[in-house]
Computed example of a mutant assay.
Amino acid sequence: MVAVFVDAEEAMAQEFERQFKDADPSVRIHRDPEIAPEALPKILADSRIAIIDHTQLPTPVAKQCKTLQHVVFLGTGARSYMNPEELAELGITVHTIKGYGDTAVAEATIALMWAAARDIALMDREMRGGQWLREDGMQLTGKTLGLIGFGGIAAEVARIAGGGGMKVLAWNRTPKDKVKGVTFVELDRLLADSHVLSLHLLLNDATRGFLNRDRIARIRPRALLINTARAALVDEAAMIEALASGHLRHAGLDVFNTEPLPQDHPLTKVRNVTLSAHSAFRTPEASENLVRSALEHCRRIVTKG
């Protein structure tokens, strides 16, 4: 067996089967989305390629996968699940997939922003509990959206938000060319001027904990915070304190340090937060793009020998 998709949910398994061609490298689909990392050596057996969606691959476990040479990670955030540098020392190359769901994630970001601005989830919860709660929302037309990080997803968010009448500011770790409708500014100005902040950084050693306690304190009072990138970009405890104090009006979160989010997690007790289950990228269109790219990686690997 050349490759194994180790943690396939049924919808993704069916998409792989739909796109698979007779001339493609052999791929075994392991239809179990919830597996322990310790099970990987047995699941991979003599395979050269592991296709991984959301399972941790600790380096000690990878050492036990004697024939493993490549990991095709279904997304951009492989670093949240494995250490690519340590795997490279073992002779294992990690391949990521960019751009497959830029529109899907951007639309989810906008959806969380609007839901947070109008307290949709809060009113829904209260009404289901028998309370007729009416909240004053934040009108977003004419407000400023600040994008922290500016790649493909942020560019899509800027396009949609600009069309909705928002002013868009952005900050990026490396200089960017001029983008129509977007003003690039220093980070301090972005934090101070934005009514809504949306995170779009890749997670690495330099960005882990990027939105720390000090930077959260410098955010414009009563701003919204949206995170569809990676939870570890934010000091979680400081964010929860800022929500509790009212410094942050509301947070819309699609990503968490522990997933699935435990029922007793502090975030489940915070009133002014809207939670979604790491599903910003989940549309049929994005899944189709993702599987196509994964299979292309496998073809290239086999062709190169």
Score class of each variant (00 low, 15 high):
G151A: 09
A229E: 10
E241V: 07
R249Y: 12
R222N: 13
G130C: 01
L169R: 08
I226E: 03
A161S: 13
F210K: 04
D214V: 07
T141C: 09
G163C: 05
L248R: 00
G181E: 01
G146L: 11
Q139W: 12
T144R: 07
R249N: 07
N204Y: 13
G129R: 15
A237Q: 15
F210D: 10
E241C: 06
V234P: 03
L197M: 06
R230A: 05
D205T: 13
T183M: 11
A158D: 04
L140G: 04
A206G: 03
T141E: 13
A232V: 11
L191I: 08
D136H: 13
E259L: 11
G137F: 13
R128A: 10
A154M: 07
I153G: 02
A170V: 12
E126A: 15
R222M: 08
P175N: 00
D193T: 09
L201Y: 03
D264N: 15
T258A: 12
E135N: 09
I160C: 00
K167V: 08
G164K: 14
T174V: 04
I240T: 12
A229R: 01
D254N: 08
I148R: 00
L202W: 07
R189G: 00
F184L: 04
L202G: 12
A217Y: 14
F184Y: 10
Q139D: 10
I160M: 01
Q263M: 05
A155W: 06
A229W: 02
T258Y: 03
G152W: 15
D205Y: 10
G209M: 02
H247I: 00
R134M: 09
K176Y: 06
F210M: 05
P221I: 05
K167E: 13
I240L: 15
D235Y: 05
T141F: 09
S194R: 06
L133F: 06
G146K: 13
D188C: 03
G151F: 14
A229F: 00
L190N: 01
S198C: 08
A192S: 13
R222P: 02
H247V: 00
K178C: 02
R230V: 08
K167A: 09
G162P: 06
I226H: 02
A158G: 05
E236V: 12
L191K: 04
A242F: 04
H200R: 03
G142H: 07
A170R: 14
S198N: 08
V182A: 01
G151M: 11
N227A: 08
N227R: 01
T258H: 05
A251Q: 02
D188R: 06
A232I: 11
A223F: 02
L253P: 06
K180H: 09
I226F: 06
G164L: 15
T228C: 13
G246N: 01
N227L: 00
L201C: 05
H195N: 14
T141V: 10
A206H: 14
E186L: 05
G165A: 02
A242E: 01
L145T: 04
V179R: 08
L243R: 01
R134E: 09
V168E: 02
M166T: 05
D193S: 10
S245V: 03
W171K: 04
D235C: 09
K180Q: 13
K143C: 04
I219T: 15
H247Q: 04
G162S: 10
I148F: 01
R222K: 15
E236H: 13
V168A: 03
H265L: 05
N227F: 00
V179G: 00
M123K: 14
N227I: 11
R208P: 02
G181V: 02
E156R: 15
T174W: 02
M127G: 05
E259H: 14
